[in-house]
Amino acid sequence: MIGITDLQKIYRMGDVEVRALDGVTLDIAKGEFLGIMGASGSGKTTLLHMLGLLDEPTSGKIIIDGTDISTLNDYEKTMFRLYKLGYVFQDYALVPDLTVRENVTLPAMLRKDLTEGQYRDACTDILTKIGMLDRQDHLPRELSGGQQQRVSIARAIVNKPDILFADEPCANLDTENSRMVLDLFREINEEMKQTIVMVSHEDWHKDYFHRIIRLRDGKVTSDGINDRNAH
C-alpha cells in the first residue's frame, strides 16, 4: 500500500541543519492500523506530512498504491489527496463558517464522479454513523471538542479514502472523548478496511494499533506488531 525508502527531511535554520527524518524506510500494508509514536520532536508529524503529501521530502521515495508521489505535479497531488487520502488534524481544523453538514460534504462536492444526491447520501450516512446527524446544521463553535473531532473524522472519510492519516487526533480531548474517537477509528478500520496511520504520544493508544513504529531523532527505533490487535 505504502512504500517508504530512505526518507529524509532536512530543515535549515541559518547555519544549523535539523534532520527531522533521517533515512526512514518502511512499508505499510493495506488495511493496517499503524501507530507512529515517539517523543515530541522525534519526527512523527513530519513523517505523517510526507505521507499525506503536505510536505516534500529532501530525499527518498514514497510510493502510495503504486504511485511514486515525487512524479506528481501540484494539481495531481491535490487530486491525489482528494480521492485517495483523508486527514484528521489535532485541532479538528473545521471551516468555522460552514455547518457540520457543509464541512463534511465539502470534499465530496469536489469529486467529479459523485452526483449531488450521492454525496448528500454519503454525508447523511456518515453523520448517522458518528451520531451527529441531529447537529448537522450547527456551526463548529457550537460543538464540544469531541464532537468537532468526530465531524473532522467524518469529513476525512466521506470520500472513502484508501488511507486515513490522523495527527494526534486526541491531543485536545479528555480520556472519554479520546476513547470515543479511537473506537471510531477502530470501527472504520474494521468495517471499511481503511488503512489508518495515526500519530500519537499517548502510550495507552497503542492498544488500538495493529502495528507500532517508534521514532527518535528522525529514525525508526522500533517497528513491531501489536499482538492484541494483529492485522
Binding site: T78, R81, L82, F89, A93, L106, L110, A156
Partner: peptide, 16 residues
Amino acid sequence: RRQIGILKAIGVDKEV
C-alpha cells in the same frame, strides 16, 4: 492562512 492550508490539505484546489 491556516484555514487555507487545511483546505488544501483535504484536497481543495488552489483555484477554488
